[in-house]
Amino acid sequence: MPMPDTVAIVTGASQGIGHAIAQRLVDDGVRLCLVAAPNDEEQLRTVAADLDAIFLASDVGDPTTADRAVEMTLERYGRLDWLASNAGIAYFEEALDAPLEHFDHTMHVNVRGMYLMTIAAARHMAKGSGGSIVCTASTASFAGEEQQAIYNISKGAVAQLTRSLALDLAQHGIRVNAVAPGWVHTPATRQIVADPGEWSKHRSRIPLDRPAEPAEIASVVRFLLSDEASYLTGSIVVADGGLTAGFRFTDWEAVQNPDGPRTPSVFGGNS
């Protein structure tokens, strides 16, 4: 096979935002190594086959996973240019109900996993001509949100990881940025988005009056990874439909669209 021009690792690639990132990069001719948790192996295998990518179903919080992913990528494609460090998990629960195991599990994946993957990729990129890394942060990196204290703590750490590694890796020609999505229509949020009582609380705070589709986050990642973003490093790009741009009361009517009904268009486009 001919050597590809651009090769990327995408973690958390079996579903949701990670899957959309992988799909977008393949559409643009990038060759991929996909990583996801062992529990998602079957799904990951299907996605990888579909995208003609190599894959590794392994825990990102385990240091051997990141090293193995880099190794596999180099063996198969001979290079590594980009990393979309995206794997993350979330528990939705009252702070006082959350067991310590949920804290440990979230930190293990969202913080330790992201740190290990980013460092392993950067270590290789630093030996060559540099590279570009995009972490998946969250609006929870900046703002509190109810019933996800542990998740918010972990995403705060991702923002600092992005800024700090951007500084240390600049000298190696490696840019590190993050996308900070708000609500996105993914398997992880499906239950909340599908529950009208739960969802109305969140929806009323989103000026665009809908969750993002995963592809709308993937396009931000694609921009940040590319040379179009050559003067961006340490930046965290918020893609939240206006969620954190302002405050409004929770019974605020986000959309008063005289042209169409509200309810059926919740998941659709904004036209």
Partner: peptide, 19 residues
């Protein structure tokens, strides 16, 4: 490409304000 980005500040500063 930016259909879900509104009310955002896109910082393009080569990392100047990351520190």
């Amino acid at each position: 490409e930016a259909t879900f980005i509104t009310g955002s500040a896109l910082i393009v500063d080569g990392g100047t304000t990351a520190r």
